[in-house]
Simulated assay, not measured.
Amino acid sequence: MKIGCPTEIKPQEFRVGMTPNAAQEAVAHGHDVLIQSGAGIGSGFSDEDYIAAGAVMAASAQEVFEKADMIVKVKEPQAGERKMLREGQVLFTYLHLAPDRAQTEDLIASGCTAIAYETVTDRNGGLPLLAPMSEVAGKLAPQVGAWTLQKANGGRGVLLGGVPGVGPARVVVIGGGVVGTQAARVAAGMGAEVMVLDRSLPRMSYLDDIYGGAFNTSFASKGNTADWVAQADLVIGAVLVPGAAAPKLITREQLSTMKPGAAIVDVAIDQGGCFETSKATTHQDPIYDVDGIMHYCVANMPGAVARTSTIALGNATMPFMLAIANKGWKKACADDPHLLEGLNVHAGQLTYFAVGKALGIDVTSPQLVIK
């Protein structure tokens, strides 16, 4: 199979879809790898690194899309990239379709087969291709939240860890999954007073058993969430419904109950955000003010630490990429029901039910597609 990897063109996106190690593995399995020249520079990989791995360099994204049987990326294809997709071509990347009708319609119209990293599952019900970036984003969230809280950025001017004689900031993390756990660990490590809200009693028991003393947990009822948010200096939204639009947990009216200059970091923004006032921002212009509350809603947070993120993502995606290349997407999905969960679009059909529900589009069962 010819595997192509273009340069990411989303603003301030420095990651790359294939590492030289992944390219070397694919070549060793007998595949041709085509990398757009300069694609790895933002992650610290030179063209020479890819050439040494056995890849061939392409002068343009158009060349990659024209020649490749499978396109491997990081972020969802932008409008110009979607025009280059073709019938029968496999797209393997993050998609986050539920809040993005334009992308969904373009992928359907292209006739391509689109497999989304974020909906591939594992035998434990986890999301193995989302987890590495969730860990990165979770660990980044208190860091960028602390920066957003600085007075020069419009925040309250509160130091997360406090100093002797001055108490620490209060951090509320909504969601106790991978993102929320990592966010709580780092915030607590910075000296903040941390509360994690979740609706799963077993998950809260787990967090208490493993991290008891580092941070606290509380049940995420509407009333309880509202009370804790009103006390917070920093709120981190870390809620995920796989493949679906994120639920809106905090309304605009609730912002008036928060401390002036408090900060919100919405890590769920890729799925539409979990605050009513969230809108996607970029690393270049990351924060904005709504009713005196500072919002940080960068849609590709892990791109800020591109080298770490690229290597972590490459480690996770490589076995699935090789399975698709070695067997063809249909047999790979038939052999692995967890990879089949990643199938979102095929040959003009939407094949992921949560996306269809969010956008009101008819869905074809992925099991029927592979038959």
Rank of each mutant, 00 (worst) to 15 (best):
residue 335 D to M: 10
residue 156 R to I: 01
residue 119 T to G: 07
residue 123 R to C: 00
residue 16 V to S: 07
residue 159 L to E: 03
residue 366 P to M: 05
residue 366 P to F: 05
residue 55 A to M: 09
residue 124 N to L: 11
residue 188 A to I: 02
residue 3 I to H: 07
residue 354 A to L: 12
residue 252 R to S: 13
residue 370 I to Q: 02
residue 43 S to A: 15
residue 295 H to G: 03
residue 121 T to Q: 12
residue 248 K to Y: 04
residue 236 I to Q: 10
residue 328 G to Y: 06
residue 241 V to R: 11
residue 264 I to E: 06
residue 151 K to L: 11
residue 102 A to W: 00
residue 52 A to P: 00
residue 124 N to F: 14
residue 325 A to I: 07
residue 230 A to E: 02
residue 138 G to V: 05
residue 332 A to I: 13
residue 71 I to G: 03
residue 237 G to E: 08
residue 51 I to V: 15
residue 64 V to Y: 02
residue 310 T to H: 03
residue 99 P to I: 11
residue 107 L to I: 10
residue 38 G to L: 01
residue 47 D to W: 08
residue 81 E to T: 03
residue 98 A to R: 10
residue 352 Y to L: 15
residue 31 H to V: 06
residue 188 A to F: 03
residue 342 G to R: 04
residue 24 Q to D: 08
residue 341 E to Y: 06
residue 39 A to G: 00
residue 72 V to G: 03
residue 223 G to P: 04
residue 242 P to L: 08
residue 289 D to L: 09
residue 82 R to M: 13
residue 352 Y to N: 09
residue 120 V to P: 06
residue 354 A to R: 13
residue 99 P to W: 09
residue 170 R to D: 10
residue 317 T to L: 09
residue 54 G to R: 06
residue 17 G to F: 04
residue 208 D to Q: 11
residue 314 G to D: 03
residue 294 M to N: 07
residue 156 R to D: 01
residue 20 P to Q: 04
residue 287 I to N: 12
residue 150 Q to S: 12
residue 295 H to I: 01
residue 252 R to D: 14
residue 150 Q to A: 15
residue 369 V to N: 06
residue 342 G to Q: 04
residue 364 T to G: 03
residue 26 A to C: 13
residue 142 P to L: 04
residue 133 M to F: 00
residue 335 D to Y: 11
residue 226 A to V: 01
residue 139 K to E: 12
residue 118 E to Q: 06
residue 23 A to T: 10
